[in-house]
Design a protein around this nucleic acid. Structure first.
Lengths: 160, 160
DNA sequence: ATTTTGTACCACATAAAATTTTGTAAATCC
DNA sequence: GGATTTACAAAATTTTATGTGGTACAAAAT
């Protein structure tokens, strides 16, 4: 059974979503041309997609290097216990650390995978020692430093 | 020595970057109020940040579930060879697969880590069997399925 | 010390864009 | 088949972005 809120969207909506994922700053006039509608109904569709929660938010993508963020990593984290209380406590702590930009609960090797970004290796080490590994629910950690990023697409493939 | 293009940005620019990362759709009028300048110089600063490449692009963030993408994974990939030719070939193949939304070259366990998104487990399996593992440079793969995502911040912490 | 130059800003004017309104045709539902 | 809803276009209105002077200030040059 499908319990989620299903909002129907047609081919035109799919086009809109593809375009806005790739370029959120397109004007409504240009968007309407691209999808072959007039501005008013185009805007209506966009608003509907926003209100329904299909479009969650809009973000500027920065160049990490240019703002002085030279080190990005993935970290596999195992927790000591796997009960809800522990996991919740861990999440609360993680939420307080702005350098941790992603946190996912996963199957497989570890319990969680984090994406962390820092100024340099020194700052990264300091962050890990003083913040992340200080979280008492954390058992072990394994860092994977990103040497280079080949693909970082902000466009999700929308199933037909 | 620091070879990268350093564009200096002050406290106000940092504020702008923080705000635009969190909410790209803010009007210039509101942004100017938030940072305490008039609209004209605010817009100038934003344009400068865009032209300098600090701001790379703007994207709509969608709700994966709502567009029918129920399965997200991280995949550790080891390549057969580690020479440049092999890596380039791998990259080219990866770029052709829209479901692979991230690809990073990493130290540690594997050679690469991918972030993949698919409709469901069936579609994911099909994708892995028919596309990813068909890439001849791929040796081994290890999938980590995301059970839930606790944090997915689009706001990078800008060092002082 | 004084000029010059450049930068950062504000206030206002104009252009462009978003948004609302109104009316109409097509699709959907009793 | 008639009523209701939905999707759309066209035009009017409001909001926003952008361009233009002009001023103050700081740094560099004379």
């Amino acid at each position: 059974m499908d319990n989620s809120v299903r909002i129907k969207f047609d081919k035109i909506d799919r086009r809109i979503l593809e375009i806005l994922q790739a370029n959120a700053k397109i004007t409504n006039a240009q968007l309407s041309k691209d999808i072959g509608l007039s501005p008013a109904p185009t805007l209506e569709r966009v608003k509907k997609l926003e209100q329904s929660g299909i479009i969650k938010s809009y973000h500027a993508k920065l160049d990490p290097e240019r703002i002085g963020l030279g080190v990005s990593t993935f970290v596999l984290v195992s927790l000591i216990g796997h009960n809800k209380g522990n996991i919740d406590a861990f999440m609360r702590e993680i939420n307080e650390i702005p350098e941790v930009i992603e946190c996912h609960h996963i199957t497989g090797t570890g319990d969680f995978i984090l994406k962390i970004i820092a100024k340099d290796i020194t700052a990264y080490q300091k962050l890990m020692l003083e913040k992340v590994s200080e979280i008492k629910e954390v058992d072990s950690m394994q860092s994977m430093v990103i040497l280079s990023t080949f693909k970082d697409s902000k466009v999700l493939p929308i199933p037909a």
